[in-house]
Design a protein around this nucleic acid. Structure first.
Lengths: 349, 349
DNA sequence: CTGAAAGCGCTTACAG
DNA sequence: CTGAAAGCGCTTACAG
């Protein structure tokens, strides 16, 4: 058979996907009809029952699959959410991403994830890429220094929710832990165990979540009349292990200047655990510790870690819910602070 | 100023993104010119230097950003890769996803990730969604029972690479560990330590990677003249902890029927560690163990785990490289088996 | 050599 | 009530 020859049916070009045009062509109607029927608007648009049946039949026969790209271009909506976080390989963010993925799917959205590595430059590239791909909205764990980039998204009126951190000066919706409270409770717990020389290990960052964790630490220390013992050590994100090792050397190994350590993030906790193991430090006798964010390692450490648990599920679900509301037109800024949960075990003494 | 009134410039509608048409309209040229210049084809298409300058200037002035959706529709290429894995919250897959993300970005691709939970149904939904979104190619960690779905992708001539597992009957490209060898070496190591009653804990799965791990175990046992001691316990993915506990009860706690355990996956290893901790079993004296895939927990367990390490980096990079080749037209099926690396520590005795 | 026109595959406002 | 025609924002084959 000559593929260019006349035939009852228009032959389908090899390798080409079947489109509404193909279905319409076979039946001899406009693509509009096909679109109505395939989108379940047959009734609404008063398409006859027989025609509806026929269109459905041919669509199924040709194994029609809608082209979401064409649909997106026409509708101006991609049913896609851009998720920017620090690092998908970090179990904390991996788990958060999973909750967001599932929740977004429930609402019919597909998620595109990108890792910023806490870098402003990478964040900018991700925002540009995802904006050009016309995501319907953003869920972002903002990196330090990205405030202007976040503002840019707001100016463009692209729906957005910040997660884990936020910028106090921006009227953006966010879902975050009450970090001040979390830190305060953690340090109170150490003080309650009789610890006096409590050091906080935090990242060197102006981001609010870190500042609040430090503020909670300071508040608890002052309340415990330990003002003179306040000792804050800031770690560089790009040199975690190196810096943590130096702090251990200074405060614990050579100096015995600390009797307790509060680790302000998950990765700092893990890094500290490696130091403790390397140096053979006895927990909690020589040093009491409290970590941040759950982690399997915390359970298997010989002295299971006391840690601040974040409600990841709630965080993920809430952020998707708020974002979808924004996408659906809600202009209301929603700022949620989640309650922390201190899991007390052996490591704090 | 009346927005409909005459003016030197066409006023831009509020909230609307600026398009090539807007730029073209301001200057009084066709969008074709604009497209050429903005895509760096000014030279090639012989657009005058002055015109090029003007277009670039206006584009920057209006803060033009290309609409990737329109571009995709027209070009038939989205510069997007669909990644389907078991669960992004699992650190093994999270780390793999991260390598793939970075590598894909280097080649100009954006990655859309989806978690199948090892379910055929979820896999099917993900494949359909991503196909309709016109991803340029797939990287898939196939779930059990998904062979027909994978075949479907091949029939549509959509570029694809399988990772971690594959189907021996399909001529699809893949990158996977040499699981037979990995398992063989792990069990040989246990035998070398004088263990005789070595049990393998594996998932109940017909997938090749699991079958190969079991086959490697059997081969090592037979070579060690331990044929009669071969003991394979299969765990249901949906009831991991329950099944693992039952096995521990039967083989170790009540029976002392095993002196060593080979855990055939990362999640089985973690589950077993929880049982060991709960029951206070002494490792390696009462029971020697070897796990699969690196994991921070393995380091912090009181007897650091001996485990089979997968070359994740290589796996991710190689799979992207092969996929990009396929997208660029290569029809050559590439099947890569990666060498395992046994990390020997205290847990194996 | 240059640039207007067609078309990717949809959806929906609008004319009849 | 019905369905043909316009248009989303690009790229590129093709006519002049």
């Amino acid at each position: 058979m000559n593929s260019k020859g006349p035939g009852v049916y228009k032959p389908l070009k090899m390798g080409k996907n079947v489109s509404m045009k193909d279905i319409a062509g076979r039946i001899g109607v406009s693509t509009a009809l096909v679109s109505f029927v395939l989108n379940g608007k047959a009734r609404e648009k008063r398409v006859g029952a027989e025609m509806t049946r026929k269109i459905l039949e041919v669509a199924s026969e040709l194994n029609y699959m809608p082209n979401q790209i064409a649909r997106s271009l026409r509708k101006g909506s991609t049913m896609t959410i851009g998720l920017i976080l620090a690092d998908i390989a970090n179990p904390f963010f991996g788990s958060l991403a999973r909750v967001i993925e599932d929740e977004a799917n429930k609402h019919g959205y597909t998620v595109i994830v990108g890792s910023s590595d806490e870098s402003k430059t990478k964040t900018e590239i991700l925002i540009t890429t995802l904006t050009n791909r016309k995501v319907d909205g953003f869920i972002i764990v903002p990196a330090e220094g990205s405030e202007e980039l976040i503002k840019g998204i707001m100016h463009k009126n692209i729906p957005m929710v910040l997660v884990d951190r936020f910028f106090p000066a921006l009227a953006a919706s966010y879902v975050a832990l009450d970090n001040y409270q979390a830190s305060y409770e953690a340090v109170r717990c150490l003080i309650g165990k009789g610890k006096m020389r409590i050091v906080i290990l935090a990242y060197r960052s102006s981001l609010i979540h870190m500042q609040q964790r430090i503020a909670g630490y300071i508040a608890a220390m002052e309340e415990g009349r330990l003002h003179d013992n306040i000792c804050i050590r800031e770690i560089r994100y790009e040199h975690v292990h190196e810096d943590v090792q130096r702090v251990f050397q200074e405060l614990i190994i050579s100096g015995k200047k600390a009797d307790a350590l509060f680790l302000a993030t998950n990765s700092l906790s893990v890094s500290a655990l490696y130091c403790i193991k390397e140096q053979g430090i006895k927990i909690p006798e020589e040093l009491a510790i409290v970590g941040f964010d759950g982690n399997e390692s915390f359970d298997f450490f010989y002295a299971p870690l006391t840690y601040v648990k974040q409600p990841l599920d709630e965080m993920g679900k809430e952020s998707v819910k708020i974002l979808v509301d924004h996408i659906n037109g809600s202009k209301k800024t929603v700022q949620v602070k989640l309650k922390p949960n201190l899991i007390i075990r052996e490591s704090c003494g």
